[in-house]
Design a protein around this nucleic acid. Structure first.
Lengths: 257, 257
DNA sequence: ATTTGTGAACTAGTTCACAGCA
DNA sequence: TGCTGTGAACTAGTTCACAAAT
């Protein structure tokens, strides 16, 4: 570490905030639905409701793209669909490979929404020789040996990793070496990649744990006093710490107010 | 809307920032791995590297939980595993139901990491009568009619929705009515829930679109000048806008510097 | 009369840098 | 000496509230 910028400001792109980028697909989905119902225009209020955000945020987000609305009227649905699609790079086709065709990989391969917007499954790859040639989602699974060839032949720049955790880093390294620069990781492990490669992770277990945290808080609010160390059921690891200081000093687990 | 606080400060819990909560599972995973290798202590630097964050952030995160480290030494692995588990509510068991046993639902049901940490699949539920009774991941699929009974009999408070988008809101409503207060949504749709219910979403298509955005930017940086409107291949919707103002006024798509 | 687009104010999250403790 | 814990400085993101446009 310690090499100047450890973190890289996450492709702040042409000044469009990352948080905004993350919401554009949401807007696009809502707009597409409106478009299918032939709705010609929407107000920021309506669209925001459909996308599950508030209207000020939506307007601010759109303001980063340009002035695509009409005051007193709203936004032209078709026009906005096109603008956002273009901004997201969905007016071109992105071939992707899915590596690891287990339960999850197969589910992803079958997922329709994949192809719907600019993405095309170029290949399904698995390390198990027994899988090779077997059709999944109407496509023959190919063996990992072919990985590099598949990537370069198809100009793949986006890879989806759905392997077991143990294989993920290795697969990732091969994908990157072969030219992939964006990775969507479903394996429950932290991937290390060189600068310039983007990784996004999807992790069921993490999401559940975050929910459990909040769930626990809800439960605690109801009963409040009692059961504050009910959770100790699993027994704290014996010995261990000499002293510990709780979040607010040394007050017992029961909160003051 | 317009009722005082529109947004609710997202369960800011006992003051632990949401961003920190989202990282605790990451730390926990790294710590569990160390624990299995019988490593007794870690420094913030080492643990941060394993979790893929920087050490200042990790220390700050831990500081919200309390002072669990020892200066000059580091953190006791076992002790920290316990503290974080407790904080996340993983010292108790959370029964969850999975609704929608298609490709994805089956993949989730089979996902091992599920049970590993505090979560237990209490039931698999599907609307298709043909699925009823069929074993998936060693468990018989139950029909949607049983949903309410299953929830209350098992005291389920966390539900996973893996249905098609069209069914998601309806399933969500039933889950909530039956007592579920945390939902993990895999369906590509925005769920509306009453106050006090948490929803987290996992959306393949959104993740890919975010990657595509950055990918496009990378490509643009290389060639720079040329192909600025190469993306227009899909043709902009005819008619539409009278005037439009690009992000920086009216400059053509070629960037100045 | 409406509804956008956006500075300004605010809130959350990150990083710095170093005092304090083992 | 080494490493945690944390105020202080900074950066990113959200919300407010209203001027500008149609």
């Amino acid at each position: 570490m310690a090499t100047g910028r450890t973190h890289r400001p996450a492709t702040r792109s042409r000044g469009i905030p990352e948080a905004t980028v993350a919401r554009l697909p949401l807007y696009l989905r809502a707009l597409t639905a409106l478009s299918e119902r032939s709705v010609p225009t929407v107000s920021s209020e309506e669209l925001a409701a459909a996308a599950g955000v508030n209207s000020a945020k939506l307007r601010k987000d759109f303001s980063y793209l340009g002035s695509y609305g009409t005051r007193g009227v709203g936004y032209d649905v078709e026009y906005l669909v096109y603008q956002i699609s273009r901004e997201l790079g969905l007016t071109q086709d992105w071939p992707v490979v899915i590596v690891g065709i287990g339960n999850l990989g197969a589910a992803l391969a079958n997922y329709g929404g994949f192809a719907s917007r600019g993405f095309r499954v170029a290949a399904l790859i698995d390390a198990d020789p027994a899988m090779a040639g077997k059709p999944v989602a109407g496509m023959p699974v190919q063996h990992t040996d072919e990985l590099e060839k598949i990537i370069s032949d198809n100009g793949v720049s986006i890879g989806v990793i759905a392997t077991p955790a143990g294989a993920a880093q290795q697969v990732c390294d091969r994908l990157v070496a072969a030219g992939v620069t964006s990775i969507l990781n479903f394996a429950p492990t932290v991937l290390t990649v060189p600068d310039g490669v983007d990784v996004r992770k999807v992790d069921l277990s993490i999401e559940l744990q975050i929910l459990a945290f909040h769930e626990q808080r809800k439960a605690g609010e109801e009963s409040s006093a009692d059961s504050a160390d009910d959770a100790e059921g699993t027994a704290p690891p014996a010995a261990a710490k000499p002293h510990r200081k709780g979040p607010d000093g040394d007050v017992p687990a029961v909160m003051p107010a």
